[in-house]
Amino acid sequence: MKSFAPVLVVVGVIVALWYAAAVGMNAQWERDQAARAGSEIGWAEIVPKAMHQERPVLPAPHQVVAEFWKLTWGEEVAGRRGIVQSGSLSNRGLVLHAWVTLSATMLGFVIGSGFGILLAVGIVHNRAMDASVMPWAIASQTIPIVAIAPMIIVVLNSVGVAGLVPKAIIAAYLSFFPVVVGMVKGLRSPDGMQLDLLRTYNASAAQGLWKLRLPASMPYLFASLKVGVAASFVGTIVAELPLGGAGLGTRLLAGSYYGQTIQIWATLVVASLLAAGMVGVVGLVQSRVLARMGMAA
């Protein structure tokens, strides 16, 4: 219980600040409404009204929670198009969109980390790759993803690749980089003595990789994977913006087109829960793997 108290205090402070900010930001609209009606209103009236607007500048927390509930549980269980009544996820609810984004993120993450690990192995074992690959990898990350994502999608569409894969490729584009950087560092982490030891056994480079470099790089790998999975998620959402169809990115864009701020915030809540969940899963796998390897983290 002791450790819960500070967490609750911080959450309480954030919620209080949020309410204060919501009232402050939404107050002007209430004043404008009153002025248009030829009257004036005081704070006593503004405060409750500012917390229950239909299209607030900043929705109050309870509005976001209600919308989140409506678009997940409410939509799927009670809604006509929900999974209970129609047998498939509603395209108006957030569960379907979250699933679409999640699946593209996972695919992109797998492609990106796999590619990143391969690149890192190449960089560590090949002098030419060591000198030539890193600058390109860094350059690739300096290009704004919002600029390059639509182009990748257009190019892939023109060669007949559509749907999940283009999004996953953009997700991979963002997630390979932290994995490359972390894995190069990890694969080079064994010291001179450990490498000399393998030389005294006349071990091959492949044996050195499997028996020494890869196991030694595991803590580095997991640190990078946590960054990589979050980057992959951002990449997927950015890739969904120009695509249309389903996905959290599409929902965010639609929400901002139609001024549905509450819906945007509810979508953001889903997005952050997903991201936290994925990082959490990587962390769980990390502690399992490292514990099994006798390297409790």
Binding site: M193, D196, L197, R199, T200, N202, M293, G294, M295
Partner: peptide, 21 residues
């Protein structure tokens, strides 16, 4: 001789792999 694995070498530090028993 090294390629024929003619010797065992003991270093200043034990240098055991922490992930192996």
């Amino acid at each position: 001789a090294r390629q024929a694995r003619a010797y065992g070498y003991v270093f200043q530090a034990a240098g055991l792999y922490p992930w192996r028993t």
